[in-house]
Design a protein around this nucleic acid. Sequence first.
DNA 1: GCCAACGTTGGC
DNA 2: GCCAACGTTGGC
Length: 153
Amino acid sequence: MKYWLFKSEPDEYSIDDLAAERGQVGRWDGIRNYQARNFLRDAVEEGDAVLYYHSACKVPAVVGTAEVVRAAYADPAQFDPECKYFDPKASGDKPRWYCVDIRFASRFARPVPLAEIKQNPALAEMVLVKQGRLSIQPVTAREWKTLVELGEM
DNA sequence: GCCAACGTTGGC
DNA sequence: GCCAACGTTGGC
């Protein structure tokens, strides 16, 4: 099992939106960045654990956890001309974009802000700190443990 | 709203 | 097959 961090803009799809889904399972779609797609398509597997991160908001922070319940499949939104995620260069036999399904697992007692993560020596090597602008990224087991502990405080 | 970092694209 | 241009992302 591997660990990941997924970013979402809370105005678009917050952890509360995920928790409110039927069965608390939601489709993680709309990924239109190639680096993020490559992780999603090639490496994210059913059963993997996810840190849920709120981005592009007042206080960017890790806010909870989720679990991958379905590995990558073609993102249906790319084929829908009515959808803002429509991609005219994608076709049914050659999909360009992928999505996964995740299930809500937990909401942190206390969100862990990016500013705090940056200051924590144990988390200084996180991709989140090293490279911005990546909405799907790997997390080590140690980083996962540290963040979950911080979120429970 | 600026702009930097990244992978991909596509003209040559 | 090089590499400049492009689209996306997201903290500030």
